[in-house]
Write a protein that binds this DNA or RNA. Structure first.
Ligand SMILES: [Zn+2]
Ligand SMILES: [Zn+2]
Ligand SMILES: [Zn+2]
Ligand SMILES: [Zn+2]
Lengths: 166, 166
DNA sequence: GGTCATATGTTACTTTATAACAGATCGTGC
DNA sequence: GCACGATCTGTTATAAAGTAACATATGACC
């Protein structure tokens, strides 16, 4: 069990990925039912590819999956699916990579923090509420209202750091 | 005088921009002298354009400036100048905008926080050391070493929020 | 003035993203 | 059932952002 305020160690190590995927998918399906959202084949294909990969994927990597599945072959197909998934909080865009990663927090509203390994390209998502709140408060003090927050740390995970040292 | 731990209100309001530019330029020149860096014409042109604009500019907007100044017309010219300026801490890349902004903190090592107004495209830079330190510490607890940090808040500055409400 | 590192000029290309518009499908009310 | 507006899909074409590669030039140093 992961405490939601901690960075998720599993992202950079072995874990029950089958369960992790199933749980995330169930959460998204529940959210779609509750909010009358349409999880169409193309959208599901993109989400499943991201859940399975458990890493950041570019729009064009995802487009390849769509093409293989016979669900579209032109960029707008991938970008539209991603737009839906990001708008509804099921997927996050990693600005630093121009890439996308499935959310591990069930689609509820949250400020996410990402750790990006430049070695293995793995991405860990954390929810550190005090971090976002602190910045939003500083900004509000200057009359600035924050609508969206991007917090990304790039570096090396434990395994890749060992590999690089060797 | 701005306290360095505060978000800079001036970025979204009137200020002595002449002095602001001159001060930043002097700091960069001093840093170049101290560190034996070569501030070539193309690099200076890019930096001056960013200091004058006091907002984020894309590589291609900057390339237009270079072209007008007769200093180059192909993308690598702009990207190389930007690479130098970013590597040495004189300019920051705003990931959210795929754009660049002059640093307002004199080239010393720091974790910067940006507030990006989606109305006027202004960018305010803050240095909030405890924010970066907190995230780095959380990450280190998981064996992850952060080498670079991206912290960007997107929203509306006071002026643009009023304009939008109207 | 030779030489190594750094910087520039240029061509060609890749990757990322969007505009625009025609056609299909879905949910709803009658 | 079927008209209707809203949403989703398919496709063409193009814009915007970024890089690889290689030849040439310049600077710093001895
Ligand atoms: Zn999330
Ligand atoms: Zn790694
Ligand atoms: Zn700075
Ligand atoms: Zn504004």
């Amino acid at each position: 069990m992961t405490r939601s305020s901690d960075i998720e160690a599993e992202a950079f190590g072995p874990h029950d990925h089958q369960a992790c995927r199933a749980q995330a998918l169930a959460a998204v399906e529940a959210a779609c039912a509750a909010r009358r959202l349409r999880m169409t084949p193309a959208r599901a294909c993109v989400l499943e590819a991201l859940l399975e990969a458990h890493r950041a994927m570019t729009a064009y990597e995802l487009l390849d999956r769509l093409r293989e599945a016979g669900l579209g072959s032109q960029p707008p197909v991938a970008y539209r699916a991603l737009d839906f998934l990001v708008r509804n909080g099921f997927v996050h865009r990693i600005e630093r990579l121009s890439a996308f990663v499935a959310c591990t927090h069930g689609g509820s509203e949250h400020v996410a923090v990402f750790l990006i390994c430049r070695g293995c390209r793995g991405v860990a998502e954390a929810v550190l509420p005090q971090l976002g709140a602190g910045l939003a408060a500083s900004a509000a003090g200057q009359g600035f209202s924050v609508e969206r927050m991007v917090i990304e740390g790039e570096g090396l995970c434990a395994r890749c750091r060992e590999a690089e040292a060797a």
